[in-house]
């Protein structure tokens, strides 16, 4: 098993599994078979089976995760291209973000509290809707477990990417701008990548939701948690 700990082999495996998972989704057309989700599940199974630790894997995975930051910077391009449109709609965008952010924080904390989660878990859950780097930062500042937050954030993102558009349709939210915005607000960059597949308008509004909810959550989370007597 020593050979499997080689970074290049682990990277090749990650690319290979993701490629296969994407083909699988293309063939079946099932949204549930989200390639990110499938790859994560297969990799975890494989690591458990071969006894390779997460630490070993993450040394290789770090080369992939590294590109997350530049990718978020790159969202500046669609943001610029839609700036005029966004400026014209500033108030609806800002108010819907504020509502989404507060509802997200209060509901996740409230429900976790009612169902008996520990204090650390509640804090780690609070920034669940925002992009990983912000979420981890917010969690750390409040005394949660940042890497648990990272894992939860990806899971929430996958949930939004897989079921988000379905939920919106069921609740008669049909406007493409509103749909994109909601997906980005609720499920950050993973949802945004799904929205980009649907079209650039969806994707741009999703990245807008990702930015604004990220900023608002960073600012409001400590405040909301204090009011709810968690901090």
């Amino acid at each position: 098993m020593e050979l499997l700990q080689n970074h290049i082999i682990l990277l090749a495996l990650t690319f290979g599994i993701f490629y296969a998972a994407r083909q699988l989704q293309k063939w079946t057309g099932w949204i549930v078979l989200n390639p990110i989700l499938v790859t994560i599940v297969v990799l975890i199974g494989l690591l458990k089976l071969t006894g390779i630790s997460y630490e070993t894997y993450s040394e290789a995975g770090g080369y992939i995760e590294f590109w997350l930051k530049p990718a978020i910077v790159a969202l500046g391009v669609p943001l610029y291209q839609h700036l005029g449109q966004i400026r014209r709609q500033f108030l609806p965008i800002f108010l819907s973000q504020l509502a989404g952010c507060i509802v997200g924080l209060v509901s996740v904390v409230g429900i976790a509290q009612l169902t008996g989660a520990s204090r650390e878990t509640i804090i780690s859950l609070a920034p669940k809707s925002v992009t990983t780097p912000i979420a981890m930062e917010v969690c750390q500042a409040m005394g949660g477990i940042p890497s648990l937050t990272a894992a939860i954030v990806v899971t929430v993102g996958l949930f939004g990417a897989v079921f988000g558009f379905k939920v919106l349709e069921v609740w008669h939210i049909k406007n493409p701008y509103s749909q994109g915005l909601s997906i980005g607000t609720a499920s950050h960059a993973v949802g945004t990548s799904r929205a980009m597949e649907k079209g650039e308008t969806y994707g741009t509004y999703a990245s807008l939701g990702l930015i604004l909810n990220g900023l608002l959550t960073a600012l409001l989370a400590p405040f909301v948690l204090r009011i709810m007597h968690i901090l």
Binding site: T14, L47, G61, I64, E65, V154, L158, S193
Partner: peptide, 13 residues
């Protein structure tokens, strides 16, 4: 972008 989320997702384990 989605692909870059695979390694942090594996942290779930």
């Amino acid at each position: 972008m989605g692909f870059f989320f695979v390694p942090p997702g594996v942290a779930l384990m």
